[in-house]
Design a protein around this nucleic acid. Structure first.
Length: 817
RNA sequence: GCCGGAGUGGCGGAAUAGGUAGACGCGACGGACUCAAAAUCCGUUGGGUGUUUCACCUGUGGGGGUUCGAUUCCCUUCUCCGGCACCA
């Protein structure tokens, strides 16, 4: 079959489907399915990775449709973000136009790919009708005390000239431009996601249909750690120096404490220091360092003694106060107690600076001697030199010291998380403006709801070249405003919202994308939520998918959504790599565009090839050759149907001859296998089963009898989700006028699958020596008797004593000699 | 360093409540069709040995174990990929 024929069919059906509104979301779903794939960032055109993701969803749509589901299958655009602005800076293009052109192009490609989206529900986050509600959501978070402004040291990308959330720093580098991230002290907006840390963690246990590795990434990211906060006191002056520790059993071994260089307390106590200038110098050098330099594990730790002392609340001992940049200001209390005897980092630090080392835990049955120690002893043991706790087992010592400190008011039990509050303001133009107003008199005042959206100023008035402050700061008509409270002079917040807030709730806007009065209709939420299946890449595990869960929990708490988890089943597809296993990228010049593929082979062939290459969860190494198999397969079915399709008015399975009945059985088995495989998203093996059946159809010699027509018809239904255009065409050849996707998915004949004859493997000592064909369901004795009469078996058993028989019914007999 | 995932023919990959390893496809080889080639159709195809329409040996990264029987379970080790990485 000519490729042109495929393309003609493709065009024909894409048009018909559009005309008949095949993908339209039903108003009143009886059996609902909310099917979601991650929306796309419109940078140029859809790429092969997207294509793979979207055909996975498309197969599910078609399968579910044939199983009687009413489906919501929407699509949209993650349309705000830096690349658009970058295009504006480098090519003097309008960010809006750049974005809209890319959306148009990508959308056209998606339509040509025949993906089953209900385009009536399309959303784009840069649309004021959309970002109005992003701003509304920001305000809601603010109203519920989950949004606050704070001046602190934050991640700063010197290239993008904006701050970054923790999730956007990948191994010390900016997620977008790969520049080493530095620290900068500024005032920023944060969202208190840490309030939800515990629930985000516990919720994972209930997500049974989420991949285990994805949940592990989230667990690690949340990083729950149980311990206690112990309050050391500054020796002079009534200042608290709380430390967080998981090892309160080592409290008597503290010989110093370390404060993070950017810690506020350090600045407070600075005036008391004799060596103030040196300490200030150290602090400044630390702050100059990049994230990579500071977190380099191989680097030797350094620090400086402040000259001040603190008091250990357990022992009343005086300990040195140091500052060192290996201590992170954003974790725990930003102050760490140094126990060199029992923590390797503290040990190295103490050795370098000649700080005393104390043994307070002895190994079971042993005794440590400081002079002989070459490293810290970090294992459990017996507490010694620990006042009232001496002799206590160190594991239970943790609990006992906590009880003690709570009783005496020296500290308290504490759970700490690695996850940080979400830094959400960005010093860039192309995003949703933060809907807040700063008034000298009234402070921070939210923009009233009826004034939303706060529109981005026109592009012609904006200078996009980054200056380290938001471009909006220099647009007078945007900046200057009136305070909603006192009506006095005020100014707008000039930052824009992190695009991860846009994407945290986009799935909800699909529920009622054109509603101007509400973020989404509650009754629509009741109808469709939660998402039944969400398909996207694993790279979003510790970013988008955490925010997505978090915002859902928040909206659940304020009564807007019926479930506190957004998605029942999550599926991560693998990446599409080039033939050498490298990521496809423009700079490498190894990009293959979906358009290129479908121009050459047509959509159905490209779909089958991509689906057949590997299981969807695994990565694909691109192979041009692989397409040949898909092309052959689809051509073969086309040719066969064209040649042999006839009228068909049913067939009687019971009247079939033996060979025909076996053919019938193989059809029924294929129905079962394909169904099971699709349910498990094992699309590659589903297609393999269909290939097997097709091979059998080719070699089946009576192509003029009803059973063959039966095979054709079942085959068409089973293949339809994978190659929809072609199968729709073949279906129309039966004289059907409706779409094949209104057909019912075939069920199979249970009785036919039960075999009346089985092949039993005969093993001698676990090695296959022969096979016998017997009627199904035979007992061991009968099989034994037949097996022992086999010539091949006799050869082995002659003169030997048989020790044992292992029989697995209908499968195997193992004779143990 | 810690936590995940994976190692199966020339290649992509099947098969794990332990039970015929290599489904299906690519490639290769042989045959049919053809003046010829392509396409198509029909076969063969893990490696090895032999007396080569058949028989045996060997084989799922390496080593060991449990078992009548291990790609599957356990221990150990190597390699690759991914996540986190001074988190106190």
């Amino acid at each position: 079959m000519d490729i042109k024929e495929f393309k003609k069919i493709e065009k024909k059906w894409q048009k018909r489907w559009k005309d008949m509104e095949l993908y339209k979301t039903p108003e009143k779903p009886k059996k609902k399915c909310f099917l979601l794939e991650m929306y796309a960032y419109p940078s140029g055109d859809i790429h092969l990775g997207h294509f793979r993701n979207y055909i996975l969803g498309d197969v599910v749509w078609r399968y579910k449709a044939m199983n009687g589901f009413q489906i919501l299958h929407p699509f949209g655009w993650d349309a705000f973000g830096l690349p658009a602005e970058q295009a504006a800076i480098t090519n003097k293009e309008s960010p809006l136009k750049w974005t809209m052109d890319n959306i148009a192009k990508s959308k056209e490609t998606l339509e040509r790919l025949g993906i089953s989206y209900d385009w009536k529900r399309e959303v784009a986050t840069c649309d004021p009708e959309y970002y109005k509600w992003t701003q509304w959501l920001f305000k809601k978070l603010y109203e519920h005390g989950l949004c606050y402004r704070e001046k602190t040291f934050v991640n700063w990308c010197p290239d993008c000239k904006t701050v970054l959330a923790n999730e956007q720093v990948i191994q010390g580098r900016c997620w977008r431009c790969d520049t080493a991230v530095t620290k900068k002290e500024t005032e920023q907006w944060f969202i208190r996601i840490t309030n939800y840390a515990e629930r985000l963690l516990l919720g994972l246990d209930k997500l049974e249909e989420w991949p285990e590795n994805l949940k592990t990434i989230q667990r690690n990211w949340i990083g729950r750690s149980e311990g206690s906060e112990i309050v050391f006191k500054l020796e002079k002056g009534n200042i608290d120096l709380p430390v967080f520790t998981t090892r309160s059993d080592t409290i008597y071994g503290v010989t110093f404490i370390v404060i993070a260089p950017e810690h506020k307390i350090l600045r407070e106590i600075l005036p008391q220091m004799k060596k103030r200038e040196e300490v200030e110098k150290y602090i400044n050098t630390s702050l100059m360092k990049t994230e990579i330099e500071r977190t380099d594990v191989t680097r030797e730790k350094d620090g400086i003694f402040t000259g001040l002392y603190a008091i250990n609340p357990f022992s009343d001992e005086r300990v040195e106060i140091w500052t060192a940049d290996y201590v992170l200001s954003t974790y725990g209390t930003g102050i760490v107690m140094g126990v060199p005897g029992h923590d390797q980092r503290d040990f190295e630090f103490a050795q370098k600076y000649h700080i005393p080392i104390k043994v307070v835990i002895n190994p079971p049955g042993g005794e440590l001697r400081v002079e002989e120690m070459e490293q810290a002893y970090t294992e459990p043991g017996v507490m010694v030199n620990s006042g009232p706790f001496s002799g206590v087992d160190s594991t239970s010592g943790i609990e006992k010291t906590i009880e003690y400190m709570e009783e005496k008011g020296l500290g308290k039990r504490k759970v700490t998380y690695k996850i940080r509050d979400w830094l959400i303001s960005r010093q860039r133009y192309w995003g949703a403006p933060i809907p807040m107003i700063h008034c000298d008199k009234c402070g921070i005042v939210p923009v009233p709801e009826h004034e939303l959206p706060v529109l981005l100023p026109e592009e012609s008035k904006v200078d996009f070249v980054p200056k380290g402050r938001s471009p909006l700061a220099d647009v007078g008509e945007f900046y200057n405003t009136e305070c909603p409270k006192c009506k006095g002079k005020a100014h707008r917040d000039v930052d824009t919202i992190d695009t991860f807030l846009d994407s945290s709730w986009y799935y909800l806007r699909y529920l009622s994308p054109h509603d101007n009065d509400e973020i989404f209709k509650k009754e629509e939420a009741e109808k469709w939520l939660p998402v039944d299946l969400y398909i996207g890449g694993i790279e979003h595990a510790a970013g988008h998918l955490i925010y997505y869960r978090f915002i859902t929990k928040f909206l659940y708490d304020i009564g807007l959504v019926p479930s506190d988890e957004p998605t029942i089943k999550m599926f991560n597809h693998g990446m599409v790599l080039d033939e050498h296993g490298d990521v496809m990228s423009k700079s490498k010049g190894n990009v293959i565009s979906p358009r290129e593929l479908i121009d050459k082979d047509g959509v159905d062939i490209a779909r089958v090839a991509l689906l057949f290459f590997a299981p969807p969860a695994r990565e694909i190494l691109w192979q041009n050759k692989g397409f040949k198999g898909a092309r052959r397969f689809l051509t073969r079915i086309y040719t066969l149907v064209k040649k042999y399709l006839k009228d068909y008015s049913g067939m009687d399975a019971n009247a079939l001859q033996k060979k025909e009945y076996e053919f019938y059985r193989s059809i029924e088995e294929t129905i079962r296998d394909v169904t099971v495989d699709i349910e498990r998203m094992d699309f590659n093996t589903a297609i393999a089963s269909l290939m097997e059946l097709l091979n059998r159809m080719y070699t089946f010699d009576k192509k003029d009898i009803p059973i063959f027509q039966y095979a054709i018809r079942k085959f068409n239904l089973l293949l339809a989700p994978f190659a929809p255009h072609l199968l729709e065409e073949l279906y129309s050849w039966y004289g059907k006028s409706e779409s094949i996707f209104y057909e019912t998915w075939p069920s199979y004949d249970e009785n036919a699958i039960k075999k009346e004859e089985v092949t039993i493997v005969i093993q001698i000592n676990g090695k296959v020596r022969s096979r016998i064909v017997v009627p199904a369901n035979r007992e061991v004795d009968e099989v034994k008797r037949i097996a022992l009469e086999e010539e091949k078996i006799k050869k082995y058993t002659a003169g030997k004593k048989i020790k044992n028989f292992i029989y697995v019914k209908d499968k195997l007999l193992n004779i143990v000699l």
